[in-house]
Structures are given as structure tokens and as C-alpha cells.
Write a protein that binds this DNA or RNA. Structure first.
Lengths: 210, 210
DNA sequence: ATAGGTCTGTAACTTTTGTTACTGCCTAAC
DNA sequence: GTTAGGCAGTAACAAAAGTTACAGACCTAT
């Protein structure tokens, strides 16, 4: 675990902090599709991603879902952090996008390290910052883009985060992430294929020139 | 200025910090409609709101605008804070919603106080937290609500922040804030009036039972 | 091989939103 | 008073997105 921690966070945190994380954190592995954290869960620790990827979703009262953003190695979830520090329940759902390895750090340590390590303080601030930026991007796509543009962007993001341009995904799953219907996705995917931007196969989509 | 500071922030910050804010901060007044901060501005200080209200807008490359949220007394703008600490340019536009009084605090002090005052640290964290929550709400409205619901919500928010159910606003201005067209707004306002939720007059909208 | 399930493609239609165009009203300036 | 400009109402149409329905392809288990 120590080596993976160093690989992912060694260039941000000092040796001492890395050791503390190793001592107090709990290593976890979640497999693709597994729910890591759900809406209204009571949160008492935050994740530090070592390997893999996590997708963060928002859900409303009627069960409509929307993908907010992806997390990858070296990331943490500022929304979780925010819940931890504010002692509130989770406002989002986190699902393993692929097999994912991460360390859960208890909230008590988060606060302690905030006072003791400048590097940790910076990390926390930067997390808030990058999550705010990603939320802004999400808002941009919702407010300013049509569904076809949102779809292409989604596929490209997903390909990047999975480090593969072959996406094993059904139209229905995409529809859930973008909060629309399967028929709309099928229609637009066909359009994207005709424009030469993707290639469609059963249970699989090939994203061209990434 | 000292009394206003105490009124707005006295129950969060200790006397000493209030005095420091008074010494180092610069008092500003902006009139309704004035741009306080624009996209790509280089930010070196953050605002602490004493009185009035500010609306925070996002804009894309083509000039399309979208209202993100309002700030009022006791608030600060976490996006600005984020820009300050990250030394990046503003990603948003801030416009005085009505006549507004605020104190600008330089970035150097922000960092200094973060280490010296626990109350300041908490304030900064809470700002991030409430701004993240507001961004989530914005995303909810965009992703899960139709334009008529968004419009009603907008009118109610605006009435609340202006402390008046008589809104002096044109259909075109609303259209800008919601990133749609004037005709759509006129149409939906008429519908809301027929449903008894608002009352339309020239240059004015009366929001019912707030 | 066949039955049942999941996945995709497509047609036909509705609803929502966006666009263009034109009208009349009000007000401020002349 | 006359006029010009901003504002609101509305019609008519276009485009985008959502809905319902159904058929055929593929896969798996029996």
C-alpha cells in the first residue's frame, strides 16, 4: 500500500504525512459498478484514490440521475469532504467506474492534518477548487450544449477515464448518466456514427481519434 | 463600517478578527446593475457582503449567460476565493442585484487569517460548502426541471433576495438570466399568471404568496 | 433447437423549446 | 402633438427532445 500511496500522492505530500495516511487510512477495493457511497449516507471518512476511477452522480426525488464528473488517481471528492466537515449526509452517489483502489481517511484526521500540514491544507483547497471547476463545466454542458454535443463529450470523457476507446456500455446506461431516454441516445449515437465520430457495435462503442 | 461589520459577521468572527478586517479591508458600494467582477478579471481580493445582494453569472464563448446563484449579507463568493488562492482568472461575472455594500479583503490576508483564526478557517470551509450546495441546486434545476418550473423558482428566489414581491424586471432580462429567449419567457409568464402564481404589469411582476 | 431475455433500430407521434415576424402600447424626447 | 425606441403579446413555424410501440438481432439456458 505504501508504494501505491507514494506513486499517487508522493509528489504532493511529505514522507511523514504519507506514513500517517498509511497508518490511519483503510485500504478498500471496489469493483466496476459497485456503489461506494450513496445519497443520504452518513459520511465519516473521505476517499483518496490510488487506482481506477469513480463516477459521481446526482439524483432527484423522482429517481432521475445525472452524471456530475469522474474522479481518478490522486483525486478526492470535495463533496464528500464537504459532507464530512459539515456533518451532513451525502448529496451524491459514487459508483466505481472500473475496478478501483482507494484509502478511506477518517474525518478526525482530516481536521488534524489541516492544522498540521500545509501540503494537506493545499490539497484540500485544491480539491475544492477543481471540484468547483468541474461543477461549472457540468453546468456549462447542461446550460449551453445540445444533447448531441453532451453525448459526444460524455463518450470522450468516459474513454479517457477508462483509458480505452472501446467502451463497454449500453444505450440505456448512457441515457441514465445523461438523464434522458434510451431512444434519444440511440438516435443521436446513430447520427454521431454517420458523422464518423464513433463506431457502433453491440454492447460496445468505439470512440474515434481521441 | 465597524458596526455594519459586526452586524453581518459579529456572530461568526471574534472581535480581533473583525478589527483586522476593518483595518485591512476596503469598503465598496456598487449600485444595482453594476458589474463588480467580470470573467477573466485577475482577482486579488475577495468580497465580504455587508448589505445588498449580488448575482453570480456564468458566460460561454458565444456570450450566452446563465445565473448561478445570489449572494447576500454574510456571504462571500467561494468561486472568487478559489480564484484568489489558485491565482487564476475569474470564471464568473458578479453583478450588483441591488445597491450593495461590501468589503474587499486582499488575498495575502486571506491566507494569513487561515492559519491564525479558526473562525476564519471555518468560514472559508463553510463558504465552499454552501457554494457547492448552491451549484448542485443549479445543476438540479437545469437537469431535472422544465423551463416553467425554473422560471417560477427564479422569480421566487429573486423576490426573496430583493425582499420584495414586486420585481422590476423585463422579460428580456429574465431570458438572459435563464439563457433562453424573450418570447419563451413571455409565453411562460402568461401561463404562470393564468395559474394564479404571478401577476403581470409593465416592467413589473408580482410574485404571489411567498 | 427453442424459449426468453436483453439490446438496438426505427417509425410515428407529442411536448417543449427556440426562432422569426409583426402588432400595439407606453414613455421620453423633440 | 408627433415620433422613436423599448417593451409585451401573439401567431406561425422549426428544431430538439421525450414517448410509445414494435420488430429484429443476439445471447443464454434448458
Amino acid at each position: 500500500m505504501l508504494q501505491e500511496l507514494k506513486d499517487a500522492y508522493g509528489f504532493i505530500f511529505e514522507e511523514e504525512l504519507i506514513r500517517e495516511i498509511e497508518e490511519t487510512g483503510v485500504l478498500k477495493v471496489s469493483h466496476a459498478g459497485e456503489i461506494i457511497m450513496d445519497i443520504n449516507d452518513y459520511i465519516t471518512s473521505m476517499p483518496l484514490l490510488l487506482d481506477g476511477a469513480i463516477k459521481i452522480l446526482r439524483e432527484d426525488e423522482d429517481g432521475n440521475e445525472l452524471l456530475l464528473y469522474f474522479l481518478e488517481r490522486g483525486d478526492t471528492c470535495a463533496l464528500t469532504l464537504s459532507c464530512c466537515l459539515g456533518q451532513t449526509r451525502s448529496e451524491i452517489r459514487a459508483v466505481a467506474e472500473r475496478d478501483t483502489k482507494y484509502i478511506m481517511v477518517p474525518v478526525s484526521k482530516i481536521e488534524e492534518w489541516t492544522t498540521r500540514y500545509k501540503s494537506w491544507r493545499n490539497f484540500v483547497f485544491e480539491s475544492y477548487q477543481s471540484r468547483l471547476s468541474e461543477m461549472l463545466e457540468t453546468i456549462d454542458t447542461l446550460a449551453f450544449m445540445n444533447m448531441d454535443q453532451r453525448l459526444l463529450r460524455y463518450l470522450q470523457d468516459k474513454a479517457k477515464i477508462n483509458q480505452s476507446e472501446e467502451l463497454q456500455v449500453t444505450h440505456q446506461q448512457i441515457a441514465y448518466d445523461l438523464n434522458t431516454s434510451r431512444v434519444v441516445i440511440s438516435r443521436l449515437l446513430k447520427k454521431l456514427e454517420m458523422e464518423g465520430k464513433i463506431l457502433l457495435q453491440r454492447n460496445q462503442i468505439l470512440v474515434q481519434d481521441l
